[in-house]
Amino acid sequence: MTYVVTENCIKCKYTDCVDVCPVDCFVEGPNFLAINPDECIDCTLCVAECPAEAIFAEDDVPADQQDFIQINAEMSKVWPVISSRKEPMPDADANNGRKGKRAEIEK
């Protein structure tokens, strides 16, 4: 099983999760992070570190977020690995918890 970054990461991109990942399975897009399912070791460390509460075990991804399983898999093949913490997006706090961000992913 893998962990999945979901909609609430869009336009927030806090990277606290990246700092605790022992295998560097996170990849970084313009306004979203994703997890490489082939690299994730199911350690759960990232879940508690995500201020946006955007990371779920694959089996626990909410029904309305299921497409993010595929989005994470696809983007992990094209986006670069991120292995250290960076500043979040400028309006991260304002976007944290905002609904309807799915269409705003920049690929």
Results as ranks from 00 to 15, higher is better:
Cys46Ser: 04
Ile55Gly: 01
Ile55Pro: 00
Asn95Phe: 14
Asp42Leu: 11
Asp24Lys: 13
Asp38Cys: 08
Val27Tyr: 05
Cys50Trp: 02
Asp59Tyr: 07
Cys40Ala: 01
Ile35Asn: 09
Pro90Tyr: 02
Glu53Tyr: 10
Val47Trp: 07
Asn95Arg: 03
Val47Met: 11
Ile69Thr: 04
Lys11Arg: 15
Asp38Lys: 14
Val81Cys: 05
Glu58Met: 13
Asp59Thr: 09
Leu33Arg: 07
Asp60Ser: 05
Pro80Ile: 02
Lys99Leu: 14
Val47Ala: 03
Glu53Ile: 04
Cys17Leu: 10
Pro62Asp: 00
Asn72Asp: 06
Gly29Cys: 06
Gln65Lys: 13
Pro51Leu: 08
Ala34Met: 04
Glu39Gln: 09
Val18Thr: 05
Lys86Ser: 08
Asn36Phe: 02
Lys11Tyr: 15
Gly100Phe: 12
Thr44Pro: 00
Lys11Ala: 12
Glu28His: 00
Cys12Tyr: 12
Pro22Ala: 04
Ile41Thr: 13
Leu33Pro: 00
Lys99Val: 15
Ile69Ser: 06
Phe68Gln: 08
Thr15Cys: 07
Asn36Arg: 05
Cys43Met: 05
Gly29Tyr: 07
Ala34Phe: 11
Asp38Asn: 12
Gln65Tyr: 10
Cys50Val: 00
Gly100Lys: 09
Lys101Arg: 13
Ala73Glu: 11
Ala54Phe: 03
Cys25Val: 03
Thr44Phe: 13
Cys25His: 05
Glu58Trp: 06
Ser84Phe: 15
Gly29Glu: 01
Cys9Gln: 06
Glu49Ser: 12
Asp67Gly: 09
Asp67Glu: 15
Pro62Tyr: 01
Ala48Phe: 11
Asp24Ser: 15
Asp42Trp: 08
Asn31Gln: 03
Arg85Thr: 14
Glu49Gln: 14
Ser76Val: 04
Asn96Trp: 04
Glu58Asp: 08
Cys43Asn: 05
Val78Leu: 11
Thr15Trp: 07
Pro22Met: 04
Asp67Gln: 13
Asp64Met: 03
Ala52Lys: 13
Gly29Arg: 07
Glu39Ser: 09
Cys17Tyr: 06
Gly29Pro: 05
Cys43Glu: 00
Met75Ser: 14
Pro62Phe: 00
Val18Tyr: 07
Asp19Pro: 00
Cys50Asn: 10
Thr15Ala: 10
Glu74Asp: 15
Phe26Val: 01
Thr15Leu: 07
Cys12Leu: 03
Ser84His: 15
Trp79Cys: 03
Pro30Asp: 15
Ser83Lys: 12
Asp19His: 08
Ala34Gly: 14
Ile82Glu: 06
Val23Met: 08
Ile71His: 13
Leu45Val: 03
Asn95Glu: 14
Glu74Val: 08
Asp38Phe: 11
